[in-house]
Nucleic acid binder design. Structure first.
Lengths: 182, 182, 182, 182
DNA sequence: GATGAATGAGGGTTCATTCAT
DNA sequence: GATGAATGAACCCTCATTCAT
């Protein structure tokens, strides 16, 4: 009878909380992320926060872990269909210019994650694995050096395009990927 | 015997506080940066924090402004002696492999800054100016596209080398800078 | 042995806090009323203050609202049994010489309230309602002018008797109420 | 050469500070009266506050003392020309309806003062003297009882007229003063 | 299992006051 | 004498966390 329906039998509350945590981090930064804000964003009672997570730390770690997972799998999806060197070039260009980076949300999260991971050793493996993905795929088609460098190049382009208003176009990316992999 | 010395008439305390703030940010992140921690790091009384700065916001902004300034001027120093295209190549390689990035401190700060600036529009200009420096110098020797891309490449290398344990060597950087600027 | 008892599930804590707030205001003035002092007076943890009240402002407003309520209802009790003009005279005299004003507490609070209300428009309605009560009752037995004036007279007597040591006696009050209502 | 002229040889700075203190009290209440606000209102350096006054307490006391003085002397001026009983009646009516009470400033100050004096015994004598003034003059023309009561009546009228929007008119005051002094 | 009322540590900030100049 | 830079105590308030239900 009350306006606020009781909320029971909700299997993936934990998941929803994690997603909401990422939203809150994107909006307020890790600095401004509080149990209260996340609870409200996820529409769960405050008590649920420490019921599902041992503490703020655990929540942040899981949130960033999920972020890394999500991005990794997107990247993987882009890369795993690759058969030829030319497809590899195309895939890496696609990724650099992906829609994913059009919204600032993901990049902000990536920066927050990076800064956070630098202080939270437990996140390092996840981060390294993520960063290793493209190298893994790329090294099937190019040398190891080229793979590393291509990877770094893409990261740089993404960062550059978000931070600066002087964008690098798809054509420019294409041109230089050609040069790097000639 | 370390009694609390009276501490008056100390010029450039403001400066010391800003430096300490950067130290604290590097260690605890913006999230964990508090007046109390900074005050202790700078060895000034708590009251000094809001005496010298209108509030936490102002302190963070000035800290990041200084960071941007410091890095900018280092970068400028590296680049301004450049006369020939070959020197430009060398300078950019030097910068990518600079000692500056050996300590995680600066990179962590750069990430915190970036994430913070994304939410603090007042920091954007400073950040953009910083990011534009190398492009400015590089475009005197290469085309505009190449300048942008070189810049992104260097950022990517730096980031890659900090985040991943699979480092890109100086030789590799050199090789690919050659290719990009051929 | 006065260890700090655990103190949960205590109904009407909010009420006790409000009462304690009035005590503190009476003793230290609004100027000297702090969360800490009230918390100690009410024997509740400091955190309870802003848990039960959005802020100091809300606490003060509720405290003064209660004061007005309490006094209003006492006044009403005194007046509502009145049937005849003579009873009305008696009631107003009773009120002027009421025990309520023997303790300075209530008068001090009344002054603090008045001064506070002058700057806090949200309290005005409550204050006006309070001031209108006796007029309402009195005007059933005397003219409107007389009601207003009787009201003012009583307020003046009360104030005078608290502030000055040269008291107005009950007999004197009686005599002049007779003259005013003759 | 600076825009802010040095301020020297200013004989009555202390006085100006006291006046400004009353302004600040009227605007913010004793609760909101700080050295900084008074210093700004008086346009004196902050350091002057504790140079001229031992502390906030002393400042408040002197401010309220001056308030009492000012009001007393105005009252005295109104009353001292009185020769006949009729003039005394007129004078007291004038005072009750005086312009002084038209501005809320003075009444607010009076309330703040009263509340403050109740807690600051050192102000009591001043307050009693003030309250005794009109009685002194009035008792030359009426009986002691009547004098006391007239005094209280006037105070009540003033208070009523400020606090309530249901004003007592001059005619009504006149009518009841006649009754009280018949 | 799940909740939300309750707590107290610690946050940013203000301010009366001190004291070297 | 007069100042204002400097201090630290105390302010209000937020929040992660606990625990009785």
């Amino acid at each position: 009878m009350t306006t606020k329906a009781k909320r029971r039998y909700e299997p993936d509350r934990r998941d929803r909380i994690i997603d909401s945590a990422l939203d809150v981090i994107a909006q307020y930064g890790v600095a401004g992320t509080t149990h209260r804000r996340v609870a409200e964003a996820a529409d769960v009672p405050l008590g649920a926060m420490t019921y599902y997570f041992k503490g703020m730390e655990e929540l942040l770690q899981e949130a960033f872990a999920r972020l890394a997972d999500t991005m990794s799998s997107q990247l993987r999806t882009t890369l795993e269909a690759v058969k030829t060197k030319e497809q590899a070039r195309q895939a890496i260009i696609d990724w650099a210019c992906s829609e994913m980076w059009k919204s600032k949300r993901n990049l902000i999260l990536a920066f927050e994650l990076t800064a956070f991971a630098a202080r939270e050793p437990s996140l390092r493996p996840q981060l390294e694995r993520w960063m290793g993905i493209s190298e893994g795929y790329l090294s099937q088609h190019f040398g190891k050096s080229t793979a590393k460098v291509l990877d770094a190049f893409v990261d740089g382009v993404v960062m550059h395009n978000i931070m600066s208003s002087n964008h690098i176009t798809r054509d420019e990316v294409t041109e230089f990927v050609q040069k790097l992999t000639a």
